[in-house]
């Protein structure tokens, strides 16, 4: 989609997180669509390293204006690394969401099974197109 940067090699969740597979682990961040929808993100509560989390639990939460949003854990696994830079510089989530604005790295319990439920390729394109249409309708 031209309105949003949605790198084709990434996987996406329905709540607009991106997932990158790296040597059996997954790196997670917020998509360009989400950071634009959120507006200026002023705070993120990042997940703790070494914490085991179930799919669907809250991975992290973000603040933009008076809105407190959440991002869910995309698949069962353990957080192995979190981007502590975001604590003091949450602007990275807006300015560089696919690179220095990454949120955490997880070691999944079962990567292959976890990827099945995610959006990828044409399916992700369709999803973002629909989301864009929904959110750009006149109020």
């Amino acid at each position: 989609m031209s309105q949003y940067n949605t790198p084709g090699e990434l996987y996406y969740t329905q709540d607009h997180a991106w997932i990158k597979v790296e040597d059996g682990k997954i790196r997670i961040g917020v998509s360009d669509f989400m950071q634009k929808l959120a507006g200026e993100i002023t705070f993120i509560r990042i997940p703790r390293a070494n914490k085991s989390l179930a799919a669907g639990a809250t991975l992290c939460s973000i603040q933009s204006g008076k809105w407190a949003g959440k991002i869910k854990v995309p698949m069962n696994g353990t957080v192995v690394e979190a981007n502590s830079e975001l604590t003091t510089n949450p602007k990275l989530l807006n300015e560089d969401c696919y690179a220095s604005g990454w949120i955490c790295v997880m070691e999944p319990e079962n990567l292959e099974a976890g990827l099945v439920g995610l959006l990828h390729g044409e399916e992700a394109d369709r999803f973002f197109t629909e989301e864009h249409a929904k959110h750009s309708k006149p109020e």
Binding site: L37, G39, K66, W67, K134, H135, S136, P138, E139
Partner: peptide, 14 residues
Amino acid sequence: NDSPLLRGRRDRFF
């Protein structure tokens, strides 16, 4: 979350 009342940025619904 998919309510037709919610369009665009969340703070705009205030």
